[in-house]
Design a protein around this nucleic acid. Structure first.
Length: 685
RNA sequence: GGCGAGGUAGCUCAGUUGGUUAGAGCGCAGGAUUCAUAACCCUGAGGUGGGGAGUUCGACCCUCCCUCUCGCUACCA
């Protein structure tokens, strides 16, 4: 299939925090490289993104900070937009889902599916927290499980007996927001029947076996498990209003409205064009079969972009579906997962101020080390090495020595090429091969490989200079030197084009040094880009070395974050619970018992089945301690047992009581046992 | 436990519809050189391909078992 135009999307970042290197490496950088490459080739391409500004977490953040949700998203929309701009992520439009055009688009989209009777409708009784003034998401309700008696079952399921619940089944429900008892109110919600749509989705996925293994595999995994209908509306006051009568106080599910954000961003783009806009309209980019839709995302978004959004588009009927979804894996930082809440991250806005003018260094690092096929680790030491040993030593150095020689010998005027020898011809031939090599890699979303080829061109240049040693023959054979430098300058000009998608800031700098305009992909493979007598510009270094100190500062920053975390963890000792009477306490019967037998419960990771002599009897207790104790080594161990806890079945085994465990701040468990042996059945009080 | 993705040189990764001596970059060692930000260039050392079994004339690549990492999921009163 030959496409006439492309629309490339990058995942809409959620507007409740800043952006870090993981975002850049996983999604925005590859998308930007790809788009810049397509543009350079003269393709018609539109690159859209925007802030995802709806959903519960934003309302929670607003409440916590005592501001409105709009204030929250305004703040982060600006912050994220600035970070993208700082790194040269070249969106044609960076829109937002709180915009009027998005509200309208998402609303219309929903209405269309509604009118086509795609949704299934369900009136359910949902719990409403009167004090908090809102309906409660299932997981914000806890209560007693009707099946096993667990008092802390969640509204959607009981983690004790594994049964799937609805909040209305809970006995003694309470809101985790206010602690109050919520009241039942009728509410109607609309579901996308993915179960019924599975065959169509399967056909779609099966026609894209060419997708990256991680993407295709993940889709298959979901399909194998069988899709389930998903509610596309929520009882919430922050979001796109459900455009249906009787849907007051409801908004579209954030995952319904977010991908539509790509469409509304496209509209937003065309709305902002004044006179001579890009040809066509937003519809050309979303409804024409000759448009190629590509979603760049991180691996956490695969199901939404490969299954739910296509299902929505299919149901709508007018839209094209994604031709590819090149999802990346995750980036770790210094051996640990990036964590926003623990501040274990390199924030883009911090980097921009700490490493002014070095955007391309991070772009290079994150592309060379991108988590394309598996999770990868970012270390500052590696960052420094990549800069010093590759950007400075290979690329920057080649440009520098070429330009310095040109200045020294010819006062900056490009010398004419003379008679070519065999080696010259070989090098020229090699130069011509690079554009195709790089585009072949980029076409397959193999960015690391493409970048490696770019560096190989610089290596070729270095080798050419080293082999020909113009500095040795500048006196004896001036004509030869002219040819050598002419060719070196042609390599430099080719580099300025090929590096642009990856290193746009450096490309600009190099063009200025060469005193040429930024050329396009079609100009590559030519070896006459630098014409004789052309005067080059002012020469400076393309990259500077990064000294140890700069890296040490960054590592220290992370260590500090870690220390802060440890301190705040210590403070996280939970507050004392409300007072109870002695009478309440005396209901609890805890005894000292001895473990007689212990074995793993099959098909579980954490469960041990224990036989315990409680002094009263010998009973079976199932406990989630397999991760901390080897069954063979705890025979004879004395433990504290809550003996009058109502029995319940766990994995088909009736557990008659509970072993009391101490838990440290790392969530590691240990037995609570007497410090010297006591008789089985002794009271703990 | 289930599903998915991975486990290839010190580090980061390629590769093979199964076929002779398994590749690259960085790091390391030695050499050469001075135009260049002690950079470039050349040479070299380094891998029982997570472990085991099987299929095959032959497996890093296929099958099975085990193991470790990551994600989803189950389970952890």
């Amino acid at each position: 299939m030959i496409f006439k135009r492309h629309i490339v999307t990058a995942a809409l970042p959620y507007a409740n925090g800043g952006l870090h290197i993981g975002h850049l490496a996983g999604c925005y950088l590859p998308a930007d490289i790809y788009v810049r490459y397509l543009r350079s080739k003269g393709e018609d391409v539109l690159f859209v993104c925007g802030s995802d500004e709806h959903g519960v977490p934003i309302t929670i953040k607003a409440k916590k900070e005592g501001i409105t949700p709009l204030q929250v998203v305004d703040k982060y929309h600006k912050l994220m937009g600035d970070s993208f701009e700082g790194f040269g992520i070249s969106f044609d439009i960076y829109s937002r889902t709180s915009s009027a055009v998005h509200e309208q688009t998402a609303s219309d989209f929903f209405k269309t599916l509604y009118d086509k009777k795609i949704f299934t409708e369900e009136i359910t009784q949902q719990y409403f927290d009167v004090k908090a003034g809102q309906f409660l998401a299932d997981r914000y309700i806890v209560g007693t499980c009707p099946k096993c008696g667990n008092e802390n079952a969640y509204g959607d399921q009981c983690e004790n007996c594994g049964s799937t619940l609805s909040p209305t089944e809970l006995i003694n429900p309470r809101s985790t927001l206010s602690g109050e008892k919520p009241v039942l109110r009728d509410t109607r919600n609309w579901f996308l029947p993915l179960d019924k749509m599975q065959p169509g989705i399967e056909t779609y996925i099966e026609s894209h076996k060419d997708w990256k293994a991680n993407v295709y595999g993940q889709c298959k995994s979901w399909l194998n498990q069988g899709l389930q209908a998903r509610a596309m509306t929520r009882d919430l006051d922050w979001g796109v209003k459900v455009p249906v009568q009787g849907a007051e106080g409801k908004v579209l599910y954030v995952w319904f409205d977010a991908p539509i954000g790509y469409i509304s961003a496209t509209k937003d783009y065309f709305n902002r064009q004044t006179v001579k806009a890009r040809k066509g309209s937003w519809e050309l980019y979303w409804k024409d079969k000759e448009t190629r839709l590509v979603h760049f995302i991180g691996k956490d978004n695969i199901v939404f972009h490969c299954i739910i959004f296509p299902a929505m588009l299919m149901a709508h009927g007018d839209y094209i579906l994604a031709d590819n979804v090149p999802a990346n894996e995750f980036l770790n930082l210094e051996g640990n997962k990036i964590s926003t809440s623990r501040n274990w991250a390199v924030w883009l806005h911090d980097y921009l101020s700490d490493f002014e003018g070095k955007q391309d260094v991070l772009r290079y690092m994150l592309c060379a080390n991108a988590p394309e096929t598996k999770d990868n680790d970012f270390t500052w030491k590696d960052f420094q090495a990549r800069n010093n040993n590759e950007l400075v030593a290979i690329l920057g150095n080649f440009i520098n020595r070429t330009l310095v020689l040109t200045n020294n010998y010819y006062s900056g005027k490009v010398p004419a090429v003379g008679e070519l020898n065999e080696q010259d011809r070989l090098v020229l031939e090699e130069i011509r091969k690079f554009p195709k090599r790089i585009s072949d890699s980029l076409d397959q979303f193999r960015f690391r490989e493409a970048l490696g080829e770019l560096m190989n061109l610089a290596r070729l240049g270095n080798k050419y200079l080293a082999d020909n040693e113009p500095w040795k023959i500048s006196e004896s054979n001036p004509e030869r030197v002219k040819t050598i430098l002419n060719i070196s300058l042609q390599v430099s000009a080719n580099l300025s084009i090929l590096m642009e998608p990856f290193l746009p800031f450096s490309a600009k700098k190099l063009c200025d040094m060469l005193n040429i305009d930024q050329l396009k992909w079609n100009d590559t493979a030519r070896t006459d880009l630098m014409t004789a007598d052309h005067q080059i510009g002012k020469v400076s270094l393309l990259y500077d070395k990064i000294e140890d100190e700069a890296v040490v500062v960054q590592i220290k920053k992370l260590e500090d974050a870690k220390k802060m975390n440890e301190l705040s963890t210590l403070k996280q000792v939970s507050a004392a619970k409300a007072d109870i009477s002695f009478e309440d306490f005396s209901k609890i019967d805890i005894r000292i018992g001895t473990i007689l037998e212990a074995e793993r419960v099959p098909k579980t990771d954490k469960l041990l089945k224990l036989k315990i002599d409680t002094g009263i009897d010998v009973r079976t207790v199932v406990s989630g301690i397999a991760g901390f104790y080897d069954p063979a080594k705890i025979i004879g161990q004395q433990v504290s047992v809550l003996v009058n806890l109502a029995p319940r079945k766990i994995k088909g085994i009736e557990s008659q009581g509970m072993i009391l465990m101490g838990e440290n701040l790392n969530a590691e468990l240990c037995f609570v046992a007497p410090v010297k042996p006591v008789e089985n059945g002794s009271n703990v009080s």
